[in-house]
Amino acid sequence: MTSVRYTKDHEYVRVEGDVAVVGISDYAQQQLGDVVFVELPEIGKVVTKGGEAAVVESVKAASEVYAPLSGEVVEVNSELEGAPGLVNEAPEGKGWFMKLKLSNPAELDELLNEHAYKDFLDTLA
C-alpha cells in the first residue's frame, strides 16, 4: 500500500519502501502549461526539505521545484530529457522527477495527505 503526500508548493511524494518518488502535482502541471524542459539534480545529491531540487521550464517561464523531503537523490527520470511533455501527460505517473532515499522519514507527517491537499486546492480556486 502506497500513499501520496503533497506540499503546498504542489510537489508530490509517493513512498515506495525506503525511497520516495517525487514529482509535481496535476494542479502544478496545469498551472505551468506545456513543459519544455526539466533540469534534474545529479544522482547522489543530498537535498533538504524545502531546498531547491529541480527546475521545470514551461514555454513561458522557469519554476523551481523544492524537495518535499530530505534525502539523497538515488535516481532521476532520464526520460524527461527527451520527452518533457510527460510531466503534462502523466505528472504522477511517467512524468515523475526523481527518487529520494529519505534521511528523515518523520518529515512525511508534515506533508498533506490527498484529502488535505484537495481542500488546500479548493482554497486557491
Binding site: G33, D34, V36, S58, V59, K60, N88
Partner: peptide
Amino acid sequence: PVQYPDGILAEH
C-alpha cells in the same frame, strides 16, 4: 487570455 485549454504549444 494567456492561453486557452489547448495550451501554448498547440496554439502556436
